[in-house]
């Protein structure tokens, strides 16, 4: 394990709250991500996992509470601001544009322009370079066998689309990579590739937040597991201290946290 738990958390929330009308999606949630770790976030459907990570990635503005990046308070008004600080996210609904091609999607929102006057005055895109880098990245990740980097994303299978979203985060993430159910639509082989990729990214020093309902996957790659229940953290466990059934019991409320800690 290369994680450093004695250091300041890379990303942290204190008392975070988000309400949608009468629904409280995030209910005074605390959260810490330490340098170099893979932190899995698990919880039942509707527990508020996606809402929590949307707050961390700027896609949602919390009503109350603090978000700290490297110990300093940050306020993201948009996903762009979080991305500018190196927080890269694979959203549960993927957030790709089906009609655009793979290279366009990888670079959507931060396109490369041609050098010189073509780029500065005529704002001309450097399609060649974007395609070259996209191709290189996809090959490096070995995520898929794509014939053509300029084919529309809608012509890809669900798993291949997921690969595009994952590649985008790996291409740009420089501080934190957040993945909301990155293996949900993937076959056995593709899941394995993504899991290996997650470990690789961690080994390069980037901490990762992994949201997943797949317990074997979580227990295989996670350094720590944040169990989310009813909008807040119910417990933090590790694959060493708890079994999958313990984690599920905490998640569903069948086991309360005190007894689970005693069991540890």
């Amino acid at each position: 394990m290369t994680a450093h738990y004695d250091k300041t958390p890379v990303l942290q929330t204190k008392n975070l709250v988000k309400r949608y009308g009468s629904v409280t999606a995030i209910d005074h949630a605390d959260f810490e991500l330490y340098p170099g770790e893979i932190l899995a976030v698990i919880g039942d459907n509707g527990a508020g996992k996606s809402s929590l990570i949307k707050a961390l990635s700027g896609a949602l503005i919390p009503d109350e509470g603090e978000i700290l990046l490297d110990g300093k308070p940050v306020h993201f008004a948009s996903p762009m601001e979080a991305r500018a600080l190196g927080i890269e996210t694979v959203y549960q609904n993927l957030a790709v544009s089906p009609a655009l091609n793979i290279a366009d999607n990888l670079y959507l929102g931060r396109e490369l322009r041609k050098p010189g006057i073509l780029g500065s005055v005529f704002r001309m895109l450097d399609k060649k370079e974007m395609e070259r880098r996209a191709q290189a990245k996809m090959t490096e990740l070995g995520l898929m066998t794509i014939q053509n980097i300029s084919q529309a994303v809608e012509s890809l299978s669900g798993g291949q689309r997921q690969g595009v979203a994952v590649a985008r985060s790996a291409l740009f993430g420089s501080k934190v990579v957040i993945m909301d159910e990155p293996t949900a639509a993937l076959g056995v082989k593709e899941s394995r590739r993504v899991l290996n990729l997650i470990k690789e990214v961690r080994d390069r020093g980037l901490p990762i937040i992994l949201i997943s309902h797949n317990m074997p996957h979580v227990f295989e790659v996670a350094d720590r597991i944040h169990i989310h229940r009813l909008g807040k953290r119910a417990a933090i466990v590790t694959p060493q201290s708890h079994s999958m059934s313990d984690a599920v019991a905490i998640m569903t409320g069948a086991m309360d946290v005190k007894t689970s800690n005693e069991a540890a």
């Binding site: 996903p79 762009m80 609904n93 957030a95 790709v96 655009l100 959507l108």
Partner: peptide, 14 residues
């Protein structure tokens, strides 16, 4: 194009 294609995805892409 991205805005017309899927506005939510476009927003998340910044």
């Amino acid at each position: 194009y991205a805005t017309g294609d899927d506005p939510e995805a476009a927003k998340l892409a910044g």
